[in-house]
């Protein structure tokens, strides 16, 4: 049910046209950060205002929206953005990656492979990959113009000099179609290989920094590295303790003050789906995932939620 006090998907039409033009230019020049007139949103900067504006400009009433925060569907940020669009756009929502048509994400790419027809919208805090190396916008703009990315390689080299390997583990810089160096938002570098050749359209929105950029489907995206120190998509060397998955990205959870810890999939939908299919990890007993509990309660609180 849409809240009639708002325009469809919250933003006014003039704003959406401006964002849509920026998105199309971003798609035409993959990896280039298009400036746009970011609006104040009813949530603070840092809560995904860029992603929310991009999602609002893309949504149609027939969409099914999924929102994740570091892979999880059930965290505050994800829940509040999902409710925001349920209320202002009246779209259906889902937690299942394969069923979603638009997925807004904070800092993860879902484990389940995306398909054509899906749009992945990233919330980006600092869109400029060179910003921590060169604080002046005039300079970084010139560096992109001249394709002068030596400084980024120096940074990666200094990693190797200090740590013996490229220690950058998230927001790992990539080069798009051999032209622009791009910050893939702070996704773990484990997710970097999924950026290139993806069937879905990937859109990046940075609200505070007022930039939109894009990676069209089947686009070449290469993580920067050196011949003798090739890029490695690393993850914790464990299996998921809940679902036993060996190939998914893991969160480390401290379970007591004796140093005990467990590793669980960061992608809650992926983990819950595997558990429902009968997979179990080290912690043996089938766990009741939050998704399962929510489903069992569906009958009791179906009328709640959107109508409040």
């Amino acid at each position: 049910m849409t809240d009639q006090a708002y325009n469809f998907a919250y933003l006014d039409e003039q704003t959406k046209r401006m964002i849509r033009r920026a998105i199309l230019k971003g798609v035409a020049v993959p990896g280039y950060q298009v400036p746009f007139a970011s609006r104040e949103m009813p949530m603070p900067y840092g809560w995904g205002t860029g992603g929310v504006q991009v999602t609002a400009a893309c949504l149609v009433p027939e969409d099914r929206l999924k929102v994740i925060d570091q892979g999880a569907d059930d965290t505050t940020n994800a829940v509040s953005i999902r409710k925001f669009f349920q209320r202002t756009a009246g779209v259906e929502v889902t937690e299942a990656t394969a069923e979603a048509t638009v997925i807004q994400t904070r800092h993860r790419i879902p484990e389940t492979a995306l398909s054509e027809g899906q749009i992945l919208v990233y919330q980006v805090p600092i869109p400029e990959p060179l910003r921590f190396l060169e604080p002046r916008e005039t300079e970084t703009r010139k560096m992109h113009e001249l394709e002068e990315y030596g400084l980024m390689h120096v940074k990666l080299y200094e990693d190797i000099a200090r740590h013996g390997e490229i220690a950058t583990s998230y927001a790992y810089p990539v080069k798009v179609e051999g032209r622009y160096v791009m910050d893939p938002s702070p996704i773990p570098k484990f997710d970097n290989p999924k950026l290139g050749g993806n069937a879905a359209i990937q859109l990046f929105g940075a609200g505070r920094e007022q930039r939109i950029y894009a990676v069209p489907p089947y686009t070449q995206v290469v993580s920067l590295d050196f011949d003798d120190h090739p890029f490695v998509a690393s993850k914790a060397p464990h299996d998921c303790d809940l679902c036993g998955a060996s190939e998914s990205y893991l969160d480390e959870v401290i379970t007591d003050d004796q140093g005990s810890r467990m590793y669980v999939c960061s992608d809650t939908d992926f983990c819950a789906t595997r558990q429902e299919a009968g997979h179990h990890g080290r912690l043996g007993v089938p766990q009741f995932s939050s998704k399962k509990i929510a489903k069992s309660l569906e009958g009791f609180c179906a009328a709640e939620g959107v109508t409040e």
């Binding site: 959406k16 035409a28 009433p61």
Partner: peptide, 17 residues
């Protein structure tokens, strides 16, 4: 609002593919 949203999705898909 709704017609321009549907139209934009077609334009986005057209430009992205």
């Amino acid at each position: 609002p709704v017609q321009s949203a549907r139209a934009f999705r077609a334009l986005l898909e057209a430009m992205a593919r």
